[in-house]
Design a protein around this nucleic acid. Structure first.
Length: 477
RNA sequence: CGGCGUGUGGCUCAGCUUGGUAGAGCGCUUCGUUCGGGACGAAGAGGCCGCAGGUUCGAAUCCUGUCACGCCGACCA
């Protein structure tokens, strides 16, 4: 039998998707568990992905006029409680500090689950005149939410994210900023993460605690479940009234500001894994791959092989994130290892190649191999990385489209949920009780009311009352 | 918070039913041979069996308690 010896094979995604995910995270060395439940070590390779996300997203923020700041991780209880809906939404998952050193604190302090209240407190002092507006601040930080069930990247008790918080003079300005940031997220996901997303608005039930409107980008994972990948909230003047954030306008009248907030987290890494990964492990889009090209010398003890590898490494380093694997492992081991880590391209350099003045390039996404002359290597690698980036997006989009179905009536809806998974497009009456019934009966939630509405009929898919909106439904992470 | 499950070298696990000086594979170290899809040989290092009580001459093993982690639900990025 030509059966290869498989050392510690990962679980197939078709057998058990959740186990597959856990295996990939562990074997690709993205994270490790710690002695605090739900808190993970993000290992160098995983953190490098986050740094690439951070850098490229931050660049887009800066282009959009965003300034970075840093606020404390502690919020006094009294401050958290100023906005009623907000505190009710977050209270069940807040971690509290009750002691400082050996003495009880006079007032409990919470570890930020999100920083709206701190920003509001800050803005109430910072904003006086219409000339002070707008303020477009963002912070990169971690937040803590005491979740019951945790999974690496998808739901941890402490996670890394960015949270933007803005104040504006008018409702129109706030709305424009909310949508602008959602568009930045969507473009980023599609162009950098190769992850297609649906843009839309959350229902009243699903919106952020304290928000007037929540916009979202929703992605479909390989197993047919949805992932809320980023949100942008318009707060109107609700927080401003709770926190007394006012400015004097040109007519010398006091006005409340209008606010927004928006965020994406390390959950995006979970999205990358579940959108692009396969049974050989992680598959990284070149734009977020810490190593885009791995050089693998074959018979590296032979005269000239290592020299050529190092020569190519030095040359390619100018244009790509490239490394050479010169460990003593066998080539087959290295191949499998690099596939597990999702490295987009592998370049094999052996005695035969060197004699012929060429190398073998192998793509992670489809396994295709080709031989390329050393002189053409850099050019070809650039082309291939570009092509992989595009192919991954196309493949993910094709998968999402193939798993997005229209349900015209309740029979169709339940059939899809029970037998096919994926997104369901259906008409909805807009009634929250109906939304709750749908969830209880099927486990499906409203993912969003997409900006791009289609008319699929006149009546609600569940209750038959007149339909108000076309909604994406699905089971979600 | 409910259900299920698991805690034994770095990892995956066996041993537990029927108590008697702690095992395997992988990984790791050193040396040598290898190298085009997870190579091989030789010699080594490494564990008070999650924790605390109890039973016993004797506990990884039996009893009680406790903690932790994982998965599935409900809640949530």
């Amino acid at each position: 039998m030509a059966e290869k010896k498989k050392v510690e094979q990962i679980t197939s995604m078709d057998v058990d998707f959740a186990q597959w995910y856990t295996d990939v995270v562990r074997k690709a060395e993205l994270t490790d568990y710690t002695s605090v439940k739900g808190c993970m070590v993000i290992k160098p390779y995983g953190y490098a992905i986050w740094e690439l996300i951070q850098r490229q997203l931050d660049d887009r923020f800066k282009e959009a006029g965003v300034e970075n700041v840093y606020l404390p991780m502690f919020i006094p209880e009294s401050l958290l409680q100023k906005e009623k809906d907000h505190v009710e939404g977050f209270a069940p998952e807040v971690a509290w500090v009750t002691k400082g050193g050996l003495s009880e604190l006079p007032e409990k302090i919470c570890v930020r689950p999100t920083s709206e209240t701190l920003f509001c407190d800050f803005y109430s002092k910072e904003v006086e005149s219409y000339r002070d507006l707008p303020k477009v601040y963002n912070q990169w930080c971690s937040v803590v939410r005491w979740e019951k069930e945790t999974r690496p990247f998808l739901r941890s008790r402490e996670f890394l994210w960015q949270e933007g918080h803005t104040v504006h003079a008018t409702a129109e300005d706030a709305e424009a900023r909310t949508v602008q940031m959602l568009n930045i997220y969507a473009d980023f996901c599609e162009e950098v993460l190769a992850m297609p997303v649906i843009k839309g608005r959350k229902t009243e039930k699903e919106k952020f605690a304290g928000a007037e409107a929540t916009y979202t980008i929703e992605a479909l994972m390989h197993d047919g479940k949805g992932l809320q990948s980023g949100t942008s909230h318009n707060f109107g003047d609700g927080f401003a009234k709770a926190f007394g954030i006012q400015y004097q306008d040109k007519d010398n009248k006091l006005q409340y500001v209008h606010q927004t907030s928006w965020g994406v987290s390390t959950r995006l890494i979970g999205g990358i894994i579940m959108v692009h990964g396969d049974d050989n492990g992680l598959v990284l889009p070149p734009k977020v791959a810490p190593v885009q090209v791995m050089l693998v010398p074959i018979q590296q003890a032979k005269e000239g092989v290592l020299d050529k590898t190092n020569e190519l490494l030095a040359e390619l380093k100018k244009d790509f994130r490239v490394k050479a694997d010169t460990t003593d492992k066998s080539p087959g081991y290295k191949f499998a290892e690099q596939e597990m880590r999702g490295i987009p391209l592998r370049v094999e350099i052996g005695p035969r190649d060197i004699a012929a003045g060429q190398a073998v390039i192998c793509r992670r996404d489809n396994g295709e191999k080709e031989t390329v002359a050393f002189t053409e290597l850099s050019k070809r690698i650039a082309e291939l990385l570009d092509d992989i980036q595009k192919s991954l997006y196309e493949k993910a989009k094709a998968h999402r489209d193939a798993n997005t179905r229209v349900a015209k009536n309740w029979d169709e809806f339940t059939d899809i949920i029970n037998n096919k998974q994926g997104f369901i497009k259906a008409m909805w009456c807009g009634d929250q009780d109906c939304e709750i019934d749908i969830k209880e009966e099927t486990g499906a939630t409203t993912r969003c009311m997409p900006f791009e509405q289609e008319n699929l009929g006149d009546v609600c898919v569940h209750c038959g009352k007149p339909a108000k909106k076309m909604v994406y439904f699905g089971r979600a992470y």
